[in-house]
């Protein structure tokens, strides 16, 4: 049973006197994987951040459905550039649990288990800053997953990853999606979008160009921009 999760009504974000995203009106439902796609600078990051509540909306409204309260209360965000804490890998992953008052011992135990789940196979006592790019990304994913969010945002989660790590992360996302986690993410990897998306939100120049089911979008994109983008052309 799919219900509405949130509705965007003429949402616009202006920064420095310039409109960077919007006006966008769209509805998101409370299940599946929504994939924000579009060329660099299209507004994917800004849109995701606005949905999560990290960006101030200049005009228009983001309205949550009453039935989506559970999703709204349990969100997590994986940033495109992992935010490194000056802590060990283990304590970085455990941090959200510590905020919720979980004891250090239990938080560390669960953090170690979570690191295992995302395939982060490093010495967990070492400093988070010493991880490689892909390991940092997995650490950030583990930190987001440890509180078992109902709604997970990911901004280009495999931008810095090799093929194997990308596959691992996609497997995890497929797995948690099957477990009922709502996922809203962005990617510039068309293959990844095909593999994961239930629905595509295609942005260009800060505007919503197309919103369609994954099947419809990849079979027959309705807009020239999306068509050209999928062909690998540079969208102007």
């Amino acid at each position: 049973m799919v219900n509405p999760m949130m509705v965007l009504d003429k949402v616009e974000l202006r920064r420095g006197g310039r409109v960077i995203v919007g006006p966008i009106s769209l509805g998101l439902r409370d299940a599946g994987v929504t994939m924000a796609m579009g060329p660099n600078g299209a507004g994917k990051t800004t849109l995701l951040r606005a949905l999560h509540g990290l960006e101030r909306v200049s005009s228009g409204q983001i309205r949550w459905a009453e039935s989506a309260e559970a999703l709204r209360a349990r969100q997590a965000f994986v940033f495109q550039t992992p935010i490194l804490m000056r802590r060990s890998v283990l304590d970085s992953i455990a941090y959200p649990l510590r905020l919720k008052g979980v004891s250090r011992g239990e938080a560390r135990e669960r953090a170690a288990a979570c690191a295992e789940t995302v395939g982060l196979r490093v010495r967990l006592k070492k400093d988070a800053s010493t991880l490689s790019g892909g390991e940092k990304q997995k650490m950030a994913l583990a930190r987001a997953l440890i509180t078992e969010p109902a709604l997970l945002f990911l901004d280009e989660p495999s931008a810095n990853l090799d093929g194997r790590s990308t596959r691992e992360i996609e497997e995890i996302l497929t797995h948690i999606r099957a477990g009922g986690t709502r996922i809203v993410m962005s990617t510039h990897d068309i293959g990844q979008a095909r593999r994961l998306a239930d629905e595509v939100v295609f942005l260009h120049d800060g505007r919503l160009v197309e919103q369609a089911s994954s099947a419809a979008f990849f079979d027959a994109p309705q807009s020239n921009q999306a068509y050209a983008y999928l062909q690998g052309d540079i969208v102007i």
């Binding site: 990290l54 965000f77 935010i83």
Partner: peptide, 19 residues
């Protein structure tokens, strides 16, 4: 500097002021 690094994470995790 540290606050600039941590800002998004701490906001995203809905930390309280004292946290």
């Amino acid at each position: 500097e540290l606050w600039a690094d941590y800002h998004d994470l701490l906001i995203s995790l809905e930390t309280t002021h004292s946290q």
